[in-house]
Design a protein around this nucleic acid. Structure first.
Lengths: 207, 207, 207, 207
DNA sequence: CATGAATGAGTCTTCATTCAT
DNA sequence: AATGAATGAAGACTCATTCAT
């Protein structure tokens, strides 16, 4: 007799399950994660879980569809919009990535990589992945175009290409640290990435 | 006195199995690939396979150790050593990657990413991965140091960092194209990578 | 909120599985018994079995620990403690063994010998076996010491040695009848054993 | 063109294989022994082995049929027949068993036990086993009857029963030491066995 | 005769999913 | 809805036996 409440409750429950599944997938990988792992972590029963998801795969796909953006792009900070110059914005974004300790980054990276891999093999997921990439590229591209318009960056810079390289660098660095490596070394590379990109984007110094 | 077949035969057999396993791992991922998949693809029996490899994992590891080695070292072409300048060498290396059609490259890339992923979760594989990374970085680092010594690259360039960024870029670009994407766009990015790196090393591109 | 079946049910189930396993091990021997054999005999699924035991070996061990215990302790009948003299107790114990028809005894004997055999080759089982032997020897030894204290048995009798000989005789006789042999002949030997032991303990049989 | 030589050679070969198989079966048990184990120990090829025996089982059966007696009864020593009294003969036989170190005894005991077990399950082997037991019992029985005739042992002694108890004791003691235990303790029990049996057989001291 | 690579049925074990309660 | 015991189809790996050389 309280369908509204029930719906909210169900939504909450579903989200909680997804959260637990995400942790498990990140920890052990999708195939290695058992449904028992997930229910154990959540302290619920298998029957309960299967009330919300028809299969383990459905959880994976749902995570991909619903969490992907939140996972990777959650960068726009509170004060992001107050930064006047494009280079500053890019720097802020990269600093965000740097600040995150590797320890907490790793599971998510692993999960992201797993997503990419799975997506490369299954058409339905590929679409999700593509959409995500486009969002990510568009986000950076906008900043770069802002920089080109304002004269901070060289006018012949291909904003799409540069945005792709941005993400390539970020992902490639992440990949190097997915298994092991020190925070310090990670930050060195992230700073290198920053310098390299700004150098690439900038009007040539004295050109 | 005879099925003591030649060592060459056995080596060939082993290589064929590895090749089949690579295809399977690339297609479906390591955990999702069954030994039956591999065996079926090769048209041999399970026993035959287990004559050459003690476990599925051993194939996976061997592939990483032997195949990826080849991928890197295979870059050193016939005329590689005759190139006088470091920038030229780097360019050649990157051109190599560009020349390979994505279609051929994808299985290898997928395998490589898959290995990274698995390696992030299992100590034995991590060691193999680390060794591979060291080899790869050292290879590029050497070229960069040559460039620094010759004055082509700026003297304050950190060769290790630059080499890591090199591979980060390459891997990140690869990641973007694992699932889909056009050869043309891929080559655009690879050229972007080349320009960006040389600029970073302070070697102005001819343009 | 329910297939959380009662503990009693689970205990029953577990016992039933053990019973089936015992029959199989006795019939075909431990290594030759497949989990499928056990499951087929019980009419359950493999998954069900593995809900109760983590491995085939665990069943084997549990059987030794729980069943054989019962075999020994089960000898202590209701009126066992009311018997005043040690010789009477020993006799009772031996009569127990005699009373059991060979047909019933055989599977247990076969299992016991099988366990001894396997235990001779695997450390984990050896421990279980040792514990069992100690329990068994201690049980008889106590009775013998009681007899020594009461003067029924000669004072220089080594109770440990005698207890070992007791079990050696029983096991040796069992071994002779595992495969074939008549109940009658079995009982003749068991009576011989009784006389021999009491004579050795220096308690002249009535005869 | 030399069938006689060839036959001898073949017989030798066969015997060698059987010997190797015996060692393996004793070490690891029949089911756990692989044909590869046997072949490796002998330094021959599988094809060679299968020229002499049609199956692993055939080796086991052949061993049982051909080696059984040699294994257990090889007791009649050089000077055995010169001993005048029955008790002395029995003692000598038991001393033989005692002298053998447990370490070398164990594999054979394990094998013997395995035989018994297998024999209890398969009709063809049961016959072999029975014949062996009869031989063994008859051997001891003869000595005992000699003792009865000479007045050393009590006239009402049932020689068959006593012989069976003899072997039961010996096998039971062996069983106790199959997995572990010290030589010293083993010898203590064997001496206990000797005393117990002679006491049982003897005219009652002063009756 | 000897060789040992190849075969493939068979082994134990796991785990996604179902369903009686 | 929730529970968790039960199911049974895989999965990785083994090994007795065969057979081309």
């Amino acid at each position: 007799m309280s369908p509204k409440v029930s719906d909210a409750y169900k939504e909450e429950r579903r989200a909680a399950i997804l959260e637990g599944a995400l942790q498990c997938f990140a920890d052990k990988g999708y195939p290695a994660t058992t449904v028992d792992d997930i229910v154990r972590r959540l302290g619920i029963s298998k029957g309960a879980l299967y009330n919300y998801f028809a299969s383990k795969e459905e959880m994976f796909t749902a995570l991909m569809e619903e969490r992907m953006e939140r996972l990777i792009v959650g960068v726009k900070g509170e004060r992001y919009d107050t930064i006047p110059d494009a280079a500053g914005k890019l720097s802020l974004i990269m600093r965000r990535f740097q600040r995150q300790a590797l320890q907490e980054l790793r599971p998510l990276l692993a999960f992201y990589l797993e997503f990419s891999l799975q997506a490369s093999r299954r058409e339905e997921l590929r679409q999700v992945m593509l959409r995500h990439e486009e969002t990510a590229v568009a986000f950076i591209r906008e900043v770069i175009e802002e920089g080109i318009r304002s004269g901070e960056f060289r006018p012949d810079l291909d904003s799409g290409e540069a945005a792709s390289l941005f993400w390539a660098l970020r992902d490639g660095i992440a990949l190097q640290f997915i298994g092991s490596g020190e925070d310090e070394q990670y930050q060195v590379l992230m700073r290198g990435m920053e310098r390299m990109l700004l150098l690439y984007a900038n009007k040539r110094p004295e050109g």
